[in-house]
Amino acid sequence: MARRRAWRLTEPAPPRAVPLVVREGIRRIVAPNPGPMTYNGTNTWLVDWAGGIAVIDPGSDEESHIDAILAETGSRLSHILLTHTHRDHLTGAELLSRRSGAPTCGFARSADPNFEPAIKLREGERVAGLVAVHTPGHAMDHLCFATDDDVLFSGDHVMGWSTSVVPPPPHGDLASFIGNLERVRDRDDRLMLSAHGPAIENPRELVQSLLDHRMAREASIAAVLTHTPAPLENVLARAYINLRPELRAAARANLLSHLGKLEAEGRAVNMPEGWRATT
């Protein structure tokens, strides 16, 4: 059972290669790729619809994971949907497609130059009984998928166990990310199922807490800037106290995105000597 700590949702490590029922017609198989950026692993979602079973984010090309997906779906596997093309989501998609014959589906403009989905999706288009919701920010090709009732498969855009890494352009966009958080917060979904971690049963409250956390982080970054330019690594050390080494690259990416947003708003400037405040 999920345990809530502040705005975070945690859970024990789930079993591998086993379909876990979340509600009728929706199961998850957790990929064997745990880590500091993936938590217990990528949730591969299996969603029943009138035309078969859609699979969201295969996540891993390990044979045991692909075998578990195929054992649960059989000949009913109709579509392979990708929330975005980061490796912990995309890996396994082409292997699963070859073994099943099901087409891959993703945003029309892939962010991975080595991958093009067979079915290219845009905002509001339907596939396998689901509606594509384009939510760029964490990745520019990020999609959420909405059911016709009250479920949103939120990928990495909204997660309960952690905030999302938002890299600077061209790979991500913080202003878009925040705007799309506000957008999904204001939907009527009663359940969000993310790509990592347990089900989110209080979507509006949790998304608002993510927004609050993001704004608090921005305020803390703005507060450490002075009129004396400081190198990026110095700003990082001031803004992220007691940072775990394995999270340093992610924190640096988030920091660059926040600094870019502050610069666009006229609140910071990047000089040859480093970053400084403008006010």
Rank of each mutant, 00 (worst) to 15 (best):
A264W: 00
E62V: 03
E11M: 15
L90D: 07
I53Y: 06
V133T: 09
R267A: 11
E218P: 04
W45K: 04
L152S: 03
R16A: 00
L210G: 03
G274D: 02
L152Q: 07
H157I: 10
I241N: 12
A128N: 05
A13P: 01
Y240L: 07
L193H: 03
P58A: 08
D67R: 10
T147Q: 00
S100W: 04
C105D: 05
H89N: 11
M271Y: 12
N270F: 12
T163H: 13
D188W: 10
M37C: 14
A6N: 14
L255W: 05
R190P: 02
D88R: 08
S75E: 15
L193T: 04
P15Q: 09
N40I: 08
R238H: 12
A108N: 05
F145R: 02
L181V: 06
A230Y: 05
T91K: 11
T42R: 01
H65A: 02
A219S: 15
F153K: 06
V235A: 03
P203F: 02
V166E: 06
E246S: 11
R87H: 14
T228A: 14
L191T: 11
T279P: 12
L255S: 00
L256R: 01
R244T: 12
H86I: 12
E265N: 12
G179V: 00
D149A: 10
A17H: 10
L210W: 03
G155L: 00
W49I: 08
A237M: 13
R252M: 14
S209A: 15
P117V: 05
P14Y: 06
H86C: 10
T91Y: 06
L247T: 04
V165G: 00
R217V: 09
P245K: 09
C144P: 02
H89C: 09
A175R: 05
P34N: 01
E218H: 05
D173E: 06
H65V: 08
E24V: 13
A175Q: 02
S162H: 12
L130S: 02
I29W: 01
R27Y: 11
Y39W: 14
T38D: 03
R87E: 13
T135W: 03
P229H: 03
V21N: 11
F153H: 02
N254G: 08
A139L: 10
G266H: 07
P169Y: 09
M140G: 05
A222E: 06
E62H: 09
T83W: 02
S100C: 01
H157T: 14
K261W: 13
D48F: 01
S209N: 12
R98M: 15
M37N: 13
